[in-house]
């Protein structure tokens, strides 16, 4: 499925932020007292959660336990694009 440009850019930003968190999480597992890495993790995590909320408010749920804001009469979880069906560019 072809996503509109704005939504795709927003999704891509979420993927990038979340990947930075994945990378830092593994690093912190073996360097739990690296204060600088810990601070960076928290800064990125705050930004990710803010962007995730904004995205889900506009385009529907992508995290399974999110609040469903989009339409009070329709469960958005099943309608938001499935990751394997998206046309990545």
């Amino acid at each position: 499925m072809r996503m509109d440009k704005k939504q795709y850019a927003a999704l891509k930003e979420l993927m990038q932020l979340n990947f930075v968190m994945t990378e830092l999480r593994l690093y912190l597992d073996t360097h739990p007292s690296d204060v600088e890495a810990l601070q960076t993790y928290n800064i990125v995590a705050m930004r990710y959660h803010k962007k995730l909320m904004e995205y889900q408010r506009r385009y529907g749920m992508i995290h399974a336990d999110a609040i469903d804001h989009v339409n009070p009469e329709r469960w958005s979880w099943i309608d938001s694009p499935w990751p394997w069906e998206i046309e990545y560019r």
Binding site: K12, M15, F19, I62, H63, D65, P83, W84, Y88
Partner: peptide, 13 residues
């Protein structure tokens, strides 16, 4: 586990 409806990295074919 909780599912996130996104890939870790884009897959372009």
């Amino acid at each position: 586990w909780m599912y996130d409806k996104k890939l870790e990295y884009p897959v372009r074919v």
